[in-house]
Design a protein around this nucleic acid. Structure first.
Lengths: 252, 252
DNA sequence: ATCTTGACGCTTGCATGCTAGTACTTTTGC
DNA sequence: GCAAAAGTACTAGCATGCAAGCGTCAAGAT
């Protein structure tokens, strides 16, 4: 029996990880369209790997809510569900606003500098480098969690954000919109540096809500990407964390 | 190419699901001790299945933070990490308090009855049926999310709760403690039914914090179950959702 | 013309064999 | 005696084969 080593090098990259990351990006960006078919064999062949890692990737994507697997029938890119968008928004807004408030309580000079630096870098990228702009955007949001002393909680938001990102990529992006986003970021950071917790949280909440305001519009423009109403997401492969009872029915 | 069917029966139970659920419970309840070895072959043999589902289960458990996998060396029940406990507590407290506040805004007679029923059933189980007591406990917390209209957000809390549950099972339970928990629940529900959002949230926050107050004590009593300081959880198999940059170092 | 039925192709679930890499043990060289 | 090096037993990552279940569609019965 091997024994646990308290200091152990982290695991290196595997084929499964790489394919998983690539497919996740292609789904969230919309390169792979919702409801389209995606089988184990298809993944295995297109990436030149065997069915084992392909199968594992499908399982991970299903846990993330990006894929639906129907045994003996097929697997599909999950349609976008309005309820998922709303729930993800709820999770993100709640966690991030709480984190920001706590970050302001603990704000140090080093933290101030970190925030200022992110905004400065984002301002540089606003006009021409969209990839860098998005990266700095995420940095700012993650920074709130780091400053709050709960860096790992950001990963929870990042999971919820997957669904929101799918929606975001359905809307056209432009330099004007990036400018507006930057302005909102600056408002948040300015209030944060001024220790104005209430104002900063309000600005953050407004910023986050703007991101998903396009839900109705996207639903109207791309109805084929959305789930039919009354078609709840099928339960995942993982055994449900709570008991299977449906509380909603008890409330009806 | 198969096509997506909007109305499709959910997938049935698989061997992977069953083993996953069983192992998850045995880890969170402490039946499997942190840092102990758990290999693919061991799982496969003890459950009478092949290595494929066993391997898949290990992967899922790793994503949940309950197992650590070291390639070509072995897999182990993850040690309990104080930082994980604190972050999980942060996530749960933030989401659940937000949900409760929103639930009070939307509270209907049916919702009131649902809450009262849960409390009544829990009161019946307080003295002799611990399993039922815990079940009704979870029901109440999940109910807040259902009443808030974000039932799916509860699954996020349930994930975070896994780490907290591991800690909870290190503390002895007794009928007295159950009575205290019931009293706290009653305080929360009474304030909720009275539309006292501030009081209800405060009571809930106090209730949630009591659950993890035993961290220092457990760490002192069972040091062998906890991770050494400065031994961060190794990155999971899944490609990180955020960029690998460590914001904490930038702040130091 | 319509309905039933059965063969077919495709899918995922699971079993198994092989390989490369790890920590540990033994042997070897001095 | 001791350190370095070769050997060993185990691990997880990956490839591949088989089985069971699903929808599809064509052939046949009514």
């Amino acid at each position: 029996m091997k024994r646990y080593l308290d200091f152990k090098a982290p695991r290196r990259s595997t084929v499964t990880m790489q394919v998983h990351g690539d497919l996740r990006q292609r789904i969230t960006t919309g390169a792979l369209k919702p409801k389209s078919s995606i089988s184990e064999n298809e993944i295995a062949q297109s990436y030149g790997v065997s069915r084992t890692p392909a199968r594992e990737v499908l399982g991970r994507l299903e846990e993330e809510g990006l894929v639906e697997i129907y045994p003996q029938y097929g697997s599909f890119i999950a349609p976008i569900r309005a309820e998922d968008i709303l729930d993800s928004q709820f999770v993100r807004e709640s966690l991030e606003c709480t984190a920001l408030a706590r970050a302001i309580e603990r704000l140090t000079p080093a933290g101030e500098e970190c925030l200022s630096g992110i905004i400065a870098r984002q301002r540089n990228a606003v006009s021409d480098d969209e990839a860098a702009f998005v990266m700095h955007d995420e940095d700012m949001h993650a920074c709130f969690f780091a400053l709050a002393g709960h860096e790992r909680a950001w990963s929870v938001v990042a999971s919820a954000k997957l669904q929101l990102d799918r929606l975001r990529h359905l809307s056209a992006r432009s330099a004007e919109k990036r400018l507006a986003v930057l302005a909102e970021h600056e408002t948040i950071v300015t209030a944060t540096l001024g220790r104005d917790a209430e104002g900063a949280v309000a600005a953050l909440r407004h910023h986050l809500r703007g991101a998903f305001a396009s839900l109705a519009d996207a639903q109207a423009r791309y109805p084929e990407f959305f789930a039919e109403i009354g078609n709840p997401r099928p339960p995942s492969t993982k055994v449900p964390l709570d008991r299977p009872k449906n509380l909603a029915t008890e409330l009806a």
